[in-house]
Design a protein around this nucleic acid. Structure first.
Lengths: 343, 343
DNA sequence: CTGAAAGCGCTAACAT
DNA sequence: ATGTTAGCGCTTTCAG
C-alpha cells in the first residue's frame, strides 16, 4: 500500500517548497509562471489531488453544504417537489464547485441523530433546511448554533432567518380570480395541511381572491395531506356540495381529485373546473392536462445555495427574504384557454 | 467570536487528558466508568461535538459515502427510479451513522469536475455509482484509483466490480409468459434504450419469454428513452401493427403508452393488454392501474451501502454481484386478476 | 486505565 | 516570489 502523495512530495519533485505547491493548487497569483508550470506538470503526471479533510481542517471550510429534508420519507419522492428542489440545490452547489450532503429523515430515530450530525463542526459549511411543517425543531435548534443556514419556504416567524420562498399566497389568489373570471360560482378548495406554512398561505390566498371576486367557498372545503389519495378522498366528499370549480393546493392531490371526479361520472373541466398548485407534474401525465400555478422550485434551490454562500462568507448579514413569483399556467383542467384573469 | 471547544478543553474541565476524552467519545471500553461519567457530563453541558474534518484527517476515514448519478439531470426526477434509489441509499447511510454526499451531473462541464471531485482523497470513503448508460466513463476511471466503489445496475463487463442489480431479464421474461398465458397472440415491445444494460436485459428477457411461449414480436418493436413522451410516441407507431398486448420497459413510458392507446380510441386492457416494468408509480396514478414487474429499488440502495461498507473496511475483497429478484404485480392494465403465469 | 507525544496534510502568517 | 513555521483538532501508538 503506497502512501498517498502530499504537498511535500510534489514540492520535492518540483524542486519547490510545500507552500508554493499549495499556492499553485489554490491559484494564488503570486507564483512565477514558470514555477507554476513546473509544479503543474508534476501534479499532472502524479495525479496528485489535495486531501479534502486536511484542507478543511486547516482552512476551516469544507466546501460542502447540507440539504436537510424532513418529511414522511417513504413518500418523499411521490411528490415531484423534493426531487426538483434537490436538483436546484445540486445545480447551485455544482456551479460553486461545492459538494452537496443530503440529509433525509423521517422517523424520530433518524431525526435526532441527523440533527446532531448536521451541526457537527467541520462537516458542512452551512445548511439549507426545508420548512415543511410548522414548528420545525431543526430550525429552532439551528438558531442556537453558529451554523449558517437558510430555510426554503416561509419559516414560522420571519424574524432572524434567511429564507427563500415562493409567492404561495399570490399564486393561489390568481387561481381564485381565474376561476371566478371563468364564470364559476360554486368554488371549492382542497387545501394542503394547515400545519404547513405553504398550506396556510395557499388557503388564505385562495380565499382572498375569492372574496375579491365576491365569491366564497362556504362549506366546500377539504384538506389533504399532499398525497394523491388524500386529494381523491377530499374531492369525493366535496362532490356532495356540487361545486363547479375547485382549487387543489398541489399537483399531486389534484391528480387524485381528477380521479375522484371521473369516478363520479363527472367531467373535468366541463362539470368542474380545476386549478392546482405546483406546476411540477408533466402536463401529459393527466387527462385533462392540469392548469396550475407554477412555482420555480429549481430556481428556489439554486438561489438558496447562493444565499447560503453569502451568509457563510459574511456578505449577507442581515436576514433576507427572497420570494419568487408564481405564475398560473392555463392548460385544460380549468376549461379555458384564456390567460389568467387580470389582477 | 468565541473559539470552538476541542478535546483539550473538555479534558481540562473534566480533569483528564485529551486522549481519555477521545476514548469516551469513541466508546472505547478501556475507560473507568466513573471517569467516563464525568467526561460525558462535561460533554453534555458544553454541547461539545468533535470536529469532523480533524477526525477524518487523523483517522483517514470520513464517514461519508458518495452517490453519483449521471443522467439527463433536468428530467432525472420525472422518473421515480432515482428518487427511490436516493431514498434507499439515504436509509443505508443513516442506519450506519454515515452521511450521504450526492453528486448529480448532466452536462459535460459538470461531469469532469464531479469525476475529479469524487476521487478527491479525504472527501468520501467510497462511492456508489449508477450504471445508467453503457460505457460509463466514471466507472472506468474509478477502476484505476483506489477509491472503493460499488455500481448499482449491471456494469458492462462483470469483471472486477462489486455491484447490486435486479433481475431485469427474469422479470421481463415473466411479463412475456403472463401475457402469453392470457391468450394474447400479437405481443409488442416498447424497449428501453439499448445503450443501457437494464434496457438490453429487459428486452432480451421479454423476447426469451415470448419464444418459450411460442410467440414473437415480429415488427412490433419500439424503443423509448425512458420518458413518458417517448412511450406515447412509440405506442402510437406500434398501433398500426394492431398488437393485442404490449410490454413497456418502464412505468414512466407505460403512462405515455396508455395515453396513446386512449387517444387512439382503444381500451386498455380490453384491446391491448399492458405490462410495464418498475412498479414505482403509485397504482392510482393511472387508469387502469398498471400491472408491472416490480423491482425493489429502495432495497437495492440500502444493500449497495452495506456492500460498499464491506469493501471499504476490507471485509469484502472479491468482486461480488448481488441480484435482487423482481416480481410481477398483477393489477388492471394486463386485463387479468390471475397471478403471474407459472414459470 | 490513563497520559504524553507524534503526526494526519494542509493553510496562513510571517520572513526573506 | 518563495520558504519557514506554527498550528487546525483529532487519533493512535507507546509508556507507564
Amino acid at each position: 500500500m503506497k502512501r498517498r502523495l502530499n504537498l511535500e512530495d510534489i514540492g520535492r519533485r518540483a524542486g519547490v517548497s510545500r507552500s508554493t505547491v499549495s499556492r499553485v493548487v489554490n491559484a494564488d497569483p503570486h507564483v512565477r509562471p514558470e514555477t507554476k508550470k513546473r509544479v503543474e506538470a508534476v501534479i499532472a503526471e502524479t495525479g496528485y489531488r489535495p486531501h479534502a479533510a486536511a484542507r478543511s481542517l486547516a482552512s476551516n471550510s469544507t466546501g460542502v453544504i447540507g440539504l436537510v429534508i424532513s418529511s414522511a420519507v417513504e413518500t418523499l419522492f411521490d411528490d415531484p417537489y423534493f426531487g426538483r428542489l434537490i436538483l436546484g440545490v445540486s445545480g447551485g452547489t455544482n456551479e460553486g464547485g461545492m459538494t452537496l450532503a443530503l440529509f433525509l429523515f423521517g422517523d424520530q430515530a433518524d431525526a435526532s441523530s441527523i440533527i446532531s450530525r448536521v451541526v457537527t463542526p467541520g462537516l458542512v459549511d452551512g445548511v439549507i433546511v426545508t420548512a415543511t411543517t410548522r414548528g420545525n425543531p431543526l430550525i429552532d435548534h439551528l438558531q442556537g448554533t453558529d451554523m449558517p443556514f437558510v430555510v426554503v419556504g416561509r419559516p414560522d416567524s420571519a424574524r432572524s432567518t434567511f429564507c427563500v420562498d415562493v409567492d404561495n399566497r399570490g399564486g393561489a389568489r390568481a387561481a381564485a380570480l381565474h376561476l371566478a373570471a371563468l364564470g364559476r360560482r360554486r368554488p371549492a378548495l382542497i387545501a394542503a395541511p394547515s400545519n404547513t406554512n405553504a398550506g396556510v398561505d395557499r388557503r388564505n390566498g385562495f380565499l382572498e381572491g375569492l372574496a375579491e371576486a365576491g365569491l366564497s367557498v362556504e362549506d366546500r372545503v377539504g384538506e389533504g395531506d399532499w398525497s394523491q389519495g388524500s386529494g381523491r378522498e377530499a374531492m369525493a366528499l366535496l362532490l356532495a356540495e356540487r361545486p363547479d370549480a375547485v382549487f387543489v393546493a398541489s399537483d399531486r392531490m389534484a391528480v387524485g381529485a381528477l380521479r375522484a371526479i371521473r369516478e363520479a361520472g363527472l367531467d373535468c373541466p366541463r362539470d368542474i373546473s380545476l386549478v392546482s398548485f405546483d406546476g411540477l407534474v408533466p402536463p401529459d401525465l393527466t387527462m385533462p392536462r392540469l392548469s396550475s400555478v407554477v412555482q420555480p422550485v429549481t430556481e428556489v434551490g439554486k438561489r438558496a445555495v447562493r444565499l447560503l454562500r453569502s451568509v457563510i462568507d459574511g456578505t449577507s448579514t442581515t436576514p433576507e427574504h427572497v420570494v419568487f413569483p408564481t405564475e398560473l399556467a392555463v392548460r385544460e383542467s380549468c376549461g379555458s384557454t384564456l390567460g389568467p384573469a387580470a389582477t
